[in-house]
Design a protein around this nucleic acid. Structure first.
Length: 275
DNA sequence: CGCCTTTGACCTGCGC
DNA sequence: GCGCAGGTCAAAGGCG
């Protein structure tokens, strides 16, 4: 089983009153009993969501990617939630936020590159620092950093020689089952998986996989609004999707993630049909 | 043979 | 200026 297959849903707080400047993300570590959460008013809904996902084995791939993307979109907030206060005496290096103006200090680049973080949950026994994200990477370095005993791996995109994207992968200092992937820059080409993507059919589960439809004014965390015609996970995913569609960048990213999963599902379905 | 990982050396920025 | 720490380079070796 590879890293991508091990990636799974942790917990998604669906109270995503999204907006780039708002608190959009809470990623709670299940193994740690939710110690990273900032508030527990939705704890029951999270647990119920988990329970149903576990029982019904629904959309594991999509769910994992959704968690990752939520973490990515909530970048600074989720980072703040995930990172325990470190020893303040250690030196701060060049790559850090300078203020709330979302600016990065970059020593060698005059432009402000896009930096985002994605959190992957993997098996504790998986000691590799490899995450499958639809792109091809070449590892060019590994370093042990001061604030984290686990090594940090450095990757460059190897799919296109001119692609400027870099990726750093390191285990979370708090939970070794969490891989934190930091992406810098943007791909100037399409991903491998995207290239293979074909037009998608309606969602096989009957739920709505169309995240571009039905714009909603406000998302709600209330799972009690579940209707008889929609399963809980589908409702939650719908609610998240409605909120996320407010941001074009996120919409694009999540559409790709879903298309990757759907492509895999279709390939499997086609193979089953042939048998 | 080509691509990848590994790993020690080197480079660079920052704080003191 | 020096030392520390993060980031990058590049040679060597492994693997399909």
């Amino acid at each position: 089983m590879d890293a991508a297959a091990r990636t799974r849903v942790v917990v998604v707080d669906t109270s995503l009153n999204l907006g780039p400047s708002e608190d959009v993300c809470r990623v709670v570590n299940r193994a740690n009993g939710g110690q990273w959460s900032t508030g527990n008013e939705s704890e029951a809904s999270m647990q119920e969501f988990e329970r149903v996902m576990e029982q019904e084995k629904l959309l594991p791939g999509i769910s994992g990617k959704l968690v990752s993307l939520v973490g990515e979109f909530g970048d600074r907030r989720s980072e703040a939630l995930l990172k325990k206060p470190q020893d303040g005496s250690h030196r701060k290096r060049k790559l850090e936020y300078t203020s709330d103006e979302e600016s990065w200090k970059r020593p060698r680049e005059s432009y402000r590159s896009r930096v985002r973080k994605v959190y992957y949950q993997v098996d504790e026994s998986d000691m590799s620092l490899v995450v499958k994200d639809g792109h091809q990477w070449r590892k060019y370095g590994q370093k042990v950093t001061r604030d984290n005993p686990s090594p940090r791996a450095y990757f460059k995109c190897s799919l296109a020689p001119s692609c400027p994207v870099k990726k750093k992968v390191q285990r979370s200092v708090d939970d070794p089952t969490i891989l934190v992937a930091t992406y810098e820059g943007e791909h100037n080409h399409r991903s491998l998986s995207h290239a293979a993507t074909i037009s998608l059919p309606p969602h096989p589960m009957g739920g709505s996989a169309s995240i571009r439809s039905s714009p909603s004014p406000t998302a709600t965390s209330s799972v009690t609004q579940q209707t008889e015609t929609e399963t809980l996970p589908n409702l939650l995913i719908k609610q998240m999707a409605k909120s996320l569609t407010r941001d074009p960048a996120f919409t694009s990213a999540i559409a790709e993630a879903i298309s990757v999963t759907m492509s895999s599902w279709m390939i499997a379905q086609n193979q089953m049909d042939r048998q």
